[in-house]
Amino acid sequence: MLSQTSNIKRALRAELRERRRNRTSTERDRATEAFTANLIALTQRSGASVVACYLSAPSEPNTRPYLNWAFENGVRTLFPITREDGLLDWAHGDGESEVQGLFGMPEPVGELLGPIAINDVDLIVVPAAAVDGAGMRLGWGRGYFDKTLGSMLKCPPVYALIYDDELLDDVPREVHDQPVDGVVTPTRILTF
């Protein structure tokens, strides 16, 4: 049986998905430029030489221009690979080859490095449906990033990539949910 919090999360995710679907291509293109500039600034400011970042799905803020910049500027990137057991494997991609992962999400083609490879990164960029002012992240409901972040011995800074209107006053929280250290939006980098 689903808890009341789970039901609230599911309804909020549906609303946020719909909002993303309704963005015009012009809005998305403009946001992509701004997301990219802010991700580059965050990476440079943090001095990160190894970053964990996901390949964005069409409805998500576009990470590809940032990933291209990272590749061209010698910033090594780890990409998440979903596993059936609920954990994430990690791989270095070639920046070109992609396959559809377990839940239809884009994933790179590359050698699997195992779940603990994430322990060697300087910065983690995660997807999110929304984040609140205290840094609580509402993911898309599978729990992969919550499990990963919750199991790390020494977690580097974690930033969620969201649109400005997805920074909410409050998001529903369950015991397993992991907060983030900040958000990157088209208009700013906010550290909690």
Results as ranks from 00 to 15, higher is better:
P127R: 00
P127G: 15
P127T: 06
A128Q: 13
A129H: 04
A129V: 10
A129D: 03
A130I: 01
V131D: 00
V131H: 02
D132W: 15
D132I: 07
D132K: 08
G133K: 05
G133F: 01
G133N: 14
A134Q: 14
A134I: 11
M136T: 00
M136G: 03
R137C: 01
R137D: 00
L138N: 00
G139N: 06
G139W: 10
W140E: 14
W140M: 10
W140Q: 15
G143P: 02
Y144N: 03
Y144F: 06
D146R: 06
K147N: 15
T148H: 10
T148F: 06
T148I: 08
L149P: 15
L149Q: 09
G150A: 09
S151A: 06
S151F: 15
S151D: 04
M152H: 06
M152Y: 07
M152S: 12
M152T: 11
M152C: 08
M152W: 10
K154P: 06
K154S: 14
C155Y: 02
C155I: 04
P157F: 14
V158T: 02
V158R: 00
V158Y: 02
A160H: 04
I162W: 13
I162N: 07
Y163K: 08
D164N: 09
L167D: 06
L168T: 04
D169Y: 05
D169Q: 12
V171D: 12
E174K: 11
E174M: 09
E174C: 00
D177F: 04
Q178M: 02
Q178H: 06
P179W: 07
P179R: 14
P179G: 12
V180Q: 10
D181L: 04
V183M: 04
V183N: 04
V184W: 09
T185V: 09
T185M: 06
T185P: 11
P186V: 12
T187E: 08
T187K: 10
T187Q: 09
L190I: 13
F192Q: 02
